[in-house]
């Protein structure tokens, strides 16, 4: 397997792992953690592809993903703290008031 392919496989694995974590975990904190792992996947793919083609856009995208991840974590943790304070718990399944 070429280096790029291996890196892409790794990023795919990271993504899937993160996805599995989001689906399988009940607590919000761990879902957020899994989300981070998911984000790491495409980020790695961007960097690898940038490195392989010698383009600088890959690294730029990586920076975008970083910023995105940071923003997301901030908002996510804020929601988590809000839920902890008012609902008493970080159970994602219990927070289902938008049920149809």
């Amino acid at each position: 397997m070429t280096g790029l392919n291996a890196l892409l496989a790794l990023s795919g694995g990271l993504f899937v792992t993160g996805l599995f974590g989001v689906l399988a975990r009940r607590t919000i904190v761990l879902q957020l953690v899994s989300l981070e792992i998911m984000l790491a996947g495409p980020a790695l793919a961007f960097v690898a592809a940038g490195a392989h083609h010698g383009a600088v856009e890959g690294t730029a995208m990586f920076l975008l993903v970083l910023a995105l991840a940071a923003a997301e974590v901030a908002v996510g943790l804020a929601i988590y703290l809000h839920l902890r304070r008012h609902e008493g718990g970080g159970d994602a399944d219990a927070t289902a008031r938008l049920r149809g």
Binding site: R25, Q31, D93, T95, A96, L98, R99, G100
Partner: peptide
Amino acid sequence: RGRNLQTGRVRDYALALA
């Protein structure tokens, strides 16, 4: 019956997305 799809759970929405 269709309303049942709207569980309100993030995980389920995420699964659907996936």
